[in-house]
Design a protein around this nucleic acid. Structure first.
Length: 308
DNA sequence: TGCAGTGTTGCTTC
DNA sequence: CGAAGCAACACTGC
């Protein structure tokens, strides 16, 4: 579900909503999330960031600082990876009256979308300046397949955690020289290499297909055999494809939803992914999009203008 | 009905 | 070393 454009959209939305709010409760029905509560209770949200496909939520220092006068006590960071079907949703929820105490969305209306049910983790957030404790909001992780991961680590360890992750496509230092250097450092098929988070951060199955369609490079081409001109075309396709997808607020080809539960629109603009059997959208091309398996993932390409 | 397929990643196996 | 297979899980579509 979430690749760089989708995660970017969620993070920019959350940046508007949650900094300054305090975590007043944590609920979950999945054992692997049970330990989160004690690390985050009472902490204030300082900011939200994206690294690759990860959402980083930075928290204040311990609220019981006075009880721990010794040593340096630093803040924590919640790291959310949505994997395939995770949604991170911000809104107002309430517990149902049923004995299962299911969480149900109150607002906004989009949270009632069927793809937004499967709620497995809920952070209760309240505004510290509002002493009534009312108008409480929630940050909910909804995930049909339960693949999503949530880790809480000391903020100072965040850079270690992403030590082995490749550069961000929009980083100033990500230029053609750097790109060709890291691509050539890894053997194998270009599609798999583009999707390797240790090479470049944030590109997944949809956008690797879209980038290669635009560059006119076959997904199974070996990186070692790519000409300089082809590498350049791939490099020059990455930012425009991701930028357009960010502009469209991500692809809801399947079930992606933004932080308010709304769909993106990039699926309407896709050129390759999911378009098997359809006429290639490249002007005057006339190819028919094929679907093959590359590195165990489905790859979509035009056999006429992406030649092996 | 049943099984292949789904945007991710990491671990195991060969 | 790399490549391939598979597991985590639940649902959709052919």
């Amino acid at each position: 579900m979430p690749e760089l454009p989708e995660v970017h959209t969620i993070v920019t939305d959350l940046k508007k909503f949650i900094p300054g709010l305090k975590i007043t409760d944590v609920w979950t029905d999945i054992p692997k999330f049970k330990k989160i509560k004690k690390d985050v209770m009472g902490k204030k949200i300082l900011g939200v960031e994206r690294r690759g496909k990860n959402i980083l939520i930075h928290l204040s220092q311990r609220s019981d600082l006075k009880k721990n006068p010794k040593g340096l006590i630093l803040g924590k960071t919640i790291i959310v990876h949505q994997k395939m079907t995770g949604h991170l949703l911000y809104g107002k929820y309430q517990k149902s009256n049923s004995k299962f105490q299911k969480w149900i969305p109150v607002e906004p209306e989009e949270l009632k979308d069927p793809f937004n049910r499967f709620i497995h983790l809920v952070f209760s957030l309240s505004n510290p300046s509002n002493s009534s404790g009312q108008a409480e909001k929630h940050l909910a992780l909804c995930d049909m397949r339960k693949f999503a991961t949530v880790a809480v680590i000391p903020t100072e360890k965040v850079s270690d955690k992403f030590q082995k992750m490749g550069p961000e496509p929009f980083d100033k230092n990500f230029n053609f020289k750097k790109f060709s250097e890291i691509i050539k450092s890894k053997g194998g098929k270009i599609k798999s290499v583009l999707m390797d988070q240790g090479i470049i951060a944030g590109i997944g199955n949809i956008y690797s297909d879209e980038i290669l369609w635009l560059s006119g490079v076959h997904p199974q081409r070996k990186t070692s055999g790519l000409k300089e001109s082809e590498l350049k075309k791939i490099y020059q396709a990455i930012k425009p494809v991701l930028k357009k997808a960010i502009w469209a607020r991500g692809s809801s080809y399947i079930d992606y939803r933004d932080a308010s539960g709304k769909k993106g629109r990039y699926q309407e603009m896709q050129k390759a992914y999911g378009l098997k059997g359809q006429k290639c959208k490249k002007r005057g091309c006339g190819g028919i999009i094929e679907r093959i398996i590359v590195g165990g993932r489905s790859a979509h390409f035009c056999p006429k203008h992406q030649i092996l």
